[in-house]
Nucleic acid binder design. Structure first.
Length: 528
DNA sequence: CGGCTTTGACCAGCGC
DNA sequence: GCGCTGGTCAAAGCCG
């Protein structure tokens, strides 16, 4: 496809109303004269109104038709709520001619009214322009990210094929126009329904993110196949099912599968100090294996979630070789059932940490992608550190809770070791997808929590704006995910801020197998 | 007796 | 091809 040809087609197919702003959006240089014209228009009137004496050309032009630009704005964009023609008839024809001053005063009043009207117009246009510019930049960044992943070609081809029946050859420009919100005209809605879907997926991924969190139970029927081939594991099927209908499909199936493959391999690891053999995260686990891992005298225990038949979530528990008071719990997979409230904290923190680090804009400023990249970031409302590692066999996000000075996991009293408190950071996105952790409760809970924790969004956004963090995170995520870009969800947030007290006070009493006799801290009890 | 743990065996992936 | 390692299976045993 010839992009120039696309542009031409786009220009041709777009209604004449849309052309001026479509051009404006592609070039600031072409925008500025328009704004300056508005300013000049407004300022001249303003000067005249303040002095009221000097002759102003607009006095004579007052009854002349509006300037071409004004016509263009008024007629093509329907931006103005005022009626120019009616305003121009403000001056009544039967003005008493007894006094020149009276006439001058009336003209002055008319001019002042006109000035106010123009000011309003100018303000409206400025606002719309700013909004358009901001939206354009957002979309442009998004598009560049897609380009960087090499997916834009497929996206364009798909888009072009869908645009052709409507006579829309353009790819980018018309979508800009649509997404920028200028189009109050219905023609846009008709002309590109696909663009709206696209725009939904690109700009407002919020809904998508929550759709992804819907429970998927259909995989249970295949649980008997659980098998030796990890690629056909239940967790695989769960995630694939999650993505079947809800994830925006703007890439070939192979790319989606590639993304899913990455997603299902992602893990969330939690490092916490605990004397207990296993942290109580609210779920029920069954131990199905134990192995001695290389480089660690402590055995690694393997657990499987037993809260629901066929739940694919698994976790590994192992003590840190350097500091055996640190318990490392690694989660993998998605729960296929609702979780008890006690588990929700864990759900939110681990899954949201994973998804936050595996989602979002991933544009690296320098384009350098180090496959062995590892970055760390401190979450603002706690001293916990989130680490993302791409050098591991699977992308692993580690929440290091051992840095907290008041880590509740440090049980001073051994009697409390059966209880577990989660001091997790509270400013993570609620995007449960990983590490076992998505439920319908997530969905309902997050809808209310979004309102509560908007300030937390701001905090995270502030972190994300940090150039160093952004660059590091972008490089890491890109190296991990490659072409996969599940969601860019910045609006769905965890309900962290309303759990500050809860986090510090909540005791999750173990109801599962935390009293296992085989301590993972005891190397002598290891298996093969 | 059902559920869970233990543990040796098995399998797959990976590097040499 | 072989060995190493991680992950899983499943029979046997334990426990409430």
């Amino acid at each position: 496809m010839d992009p120039n040809n696309n542009n031409n087609k786009n220009m041709n197919m777009s209604p004449s109303k849309t052309i001026p702003f479509q051009v404006n959006l592609t070039s600031d240089h072409q925008n500025r004269p328009i704004i300056r014209e508005l300013d000049f228009f407004s300022q001249n009137n303003s000067n005249h109104a303040s002095t009221s004496t000097p002759p102003n050309p607009y006095i004579h032009d007052h009854y002349t038709p509006p300037s071409p630009f004004e016509m263009k704005v008024n007629t093509s964009l329907n931006l103005l709520t005022t009626n120019t023609s009616s305003d121009q008839s403000v001056v009544e024809p039967d003005i008493p001619t007894s006094s020149e001053d009276t006439r001058a005063n009336l003209e002055l009043v008319n001019l002042q009214a006109e000035l106010e009207r123009k000011k309003v117009e100018n303000h409206q246009l400025r606002n719309m322009f700013d909004e358009a510019k901001m939206n354009y930049n957002t979309l442009n960044t998004h598009f560049m990210s897609l380009m960087q992943k090499g997916k834009v070609e497929d996206c364009n081809e798909e888009q072009l094929e869908e645009d052709k029946p409507n006579g829309n050859g353009g790819v980018l420009a018309p979508r800009q126009f649509i997404d920028l919100g200028f189009a109050s005209n219905d023609s846009h809605a008709v002309e590109e329904p696909r663009s709206q879907d696209q725009s939904k997926s690109l700009v407002n991924d919020n809904e998508e993110g929550f759709k992804d969190e819907e429970l998927v139970l259909d995989h249970e029927k295949n649980e008997s196949d659980r098998g030796k081939d990890r690629n056909d594991s239940p967790s695989d099927r769960v995630i694939a099912g999650n993505n079947n209908d809800d994830v925006p499909n703007f890439s070939p199936q192979s790319s989606v599968e590639q993304a899913e493959a990455t997603m299902r391999k992602a893990r969330v690891s939690v490092r916490a100090r605990s004397e207990a053999n296993m942290i109580n995260d609210g779920c029920q686990w069954r131990k199905y294996g134990q192995k001695m891992a290389k480089g660690n005298p402590c055995p690694r225990a393997y657990y499987r979630c037993t809260m629901a038949i066929g739940c694919p979530v698994r976790k590994q528990v192992q003590r840190c070789a350097e500091d055996r008071s640190i318990l490392v719990t690694t989660y993998e997979g998605n729960h296929n059932h609702a979780l008890p409230p006690a588990a929700m904290e864990m759900v939110h923190q681990t899954s949201s940490a994973a998804k936050m680090l595996l989602s979002g804009p991933m544009t690296s400023p320098d384009g350098l992608m180090n496959p062995n990249f590892l970055t760390r970031t401190m979450f603002p409302s706690s001293s916990s550190i989130a680490t993302i590692s791409a050098s591991a066999p699977f992308p692993t996000i580690t929440l290091d809770l051992t840095q907290s000075p008041n880590n509740p996991l440090q049980f001073p009293n051994p009697k409390l070791s059966n209880q577990f408190q989660f001091p997790f950071p509270q400013t993570l996105f609620n995007q449960s997808r990983f590490s076992g952790l998505q439920t319908s409760q997530d969905i309902a809970e997050s809808s209310t929590s979004r309102q509560i924790s908007q300030n937390l969004v701001d905090k995270v956004t502030a972190i994300a704006k940090d150039p160093n963090f952004s660059a590091a995170l972008a490089a890491a995520l890109t190296s991990i995910i490659g072409a996969a870009w599940p969601n860019n969800d910045n609006s769905a947030v965890d309900n962290g801020n309303n759990t500050t007290a809860n986090n510090s006070n909540r005791n999750v009493t173990s109801s599962n197998n935390s009293n296992e006799s085989n301590d993972t801290n005891n190397p002598s009890s290891s298996g093969n």
